[in-house]
Nucleic acid binder design. Structure first.
Lengths: 236, 236
DNA sequence: CAGCCATGTTTTGTGCACAATATGAGAATT
DNA sequence: AATTCTCATATTGTGCACAAAACATGGCTG
């Protein structure tokens, strides 16, 4: 078991929000689950702490975070700032080929929505933003955008409303149209509006998904990993 | 010697660009310099690698990077994207008190420039951008902005032109005026223009500052650290 | 003489044992 | 009965020793 794999599995578990907040992740416990030495897990946990996916407390260990809606607001605000900048940049720099690629993506979203394919639509919907970051061609922007988007996915999993996730395709289309028309101001505004709307769709559902054991969740994701399933960004 | 201190000292040395690129930083060597165990240094080195301030090669060790102007372009582009988003946000959200704070900063810059106080002006000039990030009140944006700005400081140290660093105060003032007037579009444009101009001031000076030994540079910065000197952002 | 393999040396990676610190229970005291 | 102190236990942090990998040197072969 490579260190990179452990990191990937834990990252996916954490971003999926499948564990309740404030849960302690013991080094020894995880080491047993993964079947590796404690040091291996230890290093990964500290790295996840640096990436702000875990709360590391000295001499106490690693704890899952419980992002509340207030922190969620910070993430969405950061996204509005970064992605409106991205929109401004893209409006001025997109090539025709890139515009075409965007168009196809938005169409695929609409198609999935029309077919009632909720899973596909939800995936494409997230990937729209990853795609925009990719089209900037700037690795630094991509990394930052990916981090922020991942963090909102964690929030959405926790606070999504059944109704909420069933709209918003028009907003992506509006962003696309502004970008394709190279209208910078309009693109910025469309992006800002869209992200604000997405944020308002989060509902303060206080019900912590009463988590299954750490062992269950991690082993499940581990099996999925070893089966070669690669969700989200890497797939598209 | 705390792990945090070692990280701070090395970060400052690297960002100051006082070491030539591609230089190897041996674990044992650094451990001797700092007078700590190898594991301590090791951990810091890996962390710096994750922060992209060092090039970590498996089984080979840590190497200083030699950012060329092409990578510099990527950093400045990322800054244009992020900071233009910041400008758009600030134009809509600055409080009168914050505007006043910005005004004072820009005035201080002008004052330092008038007095010919090159050192102070250069410091204030960098801090202007840190200040903008701070005024967003968003910790995620702050972290990202700080990383990008630090990276450009590394570039400036390496490729600065004597003439280049002696202008640009007017550009900050233009940004301030647009923000104070809450003119979003104008603020975005002023920011983009400014960062583009700064980038063009970098000159492809091929002369690697023929570095003094790792030991000399690190021990010097270490002494400075222990004397309590805290440069740049923390000072402001 | 050039290229290549082998061996010795140096440097990094990993597991282990022990030390330091936090947690929780239980007893003693007010 | 509540609080605090102490001690037992569990968990994390750290240094050390060994393993593994890369590098350098020198000799061998074509």
């Amino acid at each position: 078991m490579q260190e990179e794999e452990i990191h990937a599995v834990l990252t996916r578990v954490l971003l999926a929000g499948r564990l309740p907040g404030g849960l302690k992740l013991g080094e020894h416990h995880l080491a047993e689950i993964f079947g590796v030495s404690r040091e291996r897990v230890r290093k990964v946990l500290h790295r996840l702490g640096a990436e702000r996916l875990l709360d590391m407390v000295r001499n106490r260990g690693a704890f899952t975070l419980a992002p509340d809606l207030r922190e969620g607001h910070v993430v969405y605000e950061a996204r509005r700032i970064l992605e409106s900048g991205m929109a401004a940049h893209l409006a001025a720099n997109l090539t025709p080929a890139q515009i075409e690629r965007l168009r196809r993506h938005v169409e695929a979203e609409a198609e999935a929505l029309r077919c009632g394919d909720q899973a596909t639509w939800q995936r494409l919907s997230a990937e729209f933003h990853y795609l925009l970051a990719e089209l900037t061609g700037n690795p630094l922007v991509q990394r930052h955008a990916q981090e922020l988007i991942s963090r909102t996915l964690m929030l959405v999993k926790r606070y999504e409303t059944s109704a909420g996730s069933a709209c918003g395709c028009d907003e992506h289309r509006a962003i696309f149209r502004a970008l394709a028309a190279r209208e910078r101001g309009k693109a910025v505004k469309a992006m800002t509006t869209h992200l604000s709307l997405v944020e308002t769709r989060l509902r303060p559902t206080l019900c912590e998904p009463v988590g299954p054991s750490v062992e269950d969740v991690v082993t499940e994701e581990l099996a999925r990993h070893q089966a070669g399933v690669v969700p989200l960004a890497e797939a598209g």
